[in-house]
Amino acid sequence: MELLSLLTPGPTGWGDELLIGLGMTLGLALATFPVSIMLSFLIHRARNSRRRPVRYLAQMHVSVFKSLPEILTLLIIYYQSQVVISWVAEYAGFDSTLSISPFLAGLIALSLVISAYGSEVVRGALQAIGKGQVEAAQALGLSGFHCFWKVILPQFWRHALPGLGNLWVILLKDTSLVSVIALSDLTHVAALAINTTREPFFFYLVIAAIYISLVILSSWIQKRLERRATRGVVAGGRAHA
């Protein structure tokens, strides 16, 4: 009971701080996810480009960011962009005290990592849709944009949702890494709370429970979205009506 009183909001409890940390975790994950999906599409396009250097670069992006530990990517992006920003600032004659926020560094690093995996999800889903859809759209005289927006994308979700759901869960858990560069997300807030309360086991158990419920909630939402995306699809693959 004594421990639970630590979770109440207010000056003595850490409930409100943890809630803000949760907001930060969710905010980072929600901001990163769309960016990494768009990046995944771009990388997929680049991997199938007609120009060889573009193809190589995209392939390299995937191999590099799939091989590097996420935390190393994060630290490199964080420190290197500080250096780059101060170079640019000096060159342009700005105030050289500009620095990159941990949030932005986390967003960039995580979207680079997630998009490396995401490009495979995109490839799998587009393969599942098949070339025939694109050819049919071209035969109907749809422009490239319309073909993608009206024909490919609506079918894309059905095949991509399981993979994207997986990526979302990975992303959600990887946001805990930004606590290392002092972004006050859930994990960082817990560390702060432990510094004053000396209750490491309790607080880490609490945030573990929060992460687990977020993951369970995500998979529930994913299941609902999948049901929505496959509505009207008869087992066997052909849509009716």
């Binding site: 858990k173 990887d174 805990s176 890494l177 606590s179 994990t187 817990a190 560390a191 432990i194 490491p200 086991f201 880490y204 158990l205 945030i207 573990a208 992460y211 687990i212 993951v215 369970i216």
Partner: peptide, 16 residues
């Protein structure tokens, strides 16, 4: 699988 490895790590190391 639900919690980040980082949290599990802290739970074991600092929690113990």
């Amino acid at each position: 699988r639900g919690m980040p490895l980082l949290v599990l790590l802290f739970l074991v190391y600092y929690g113990a």
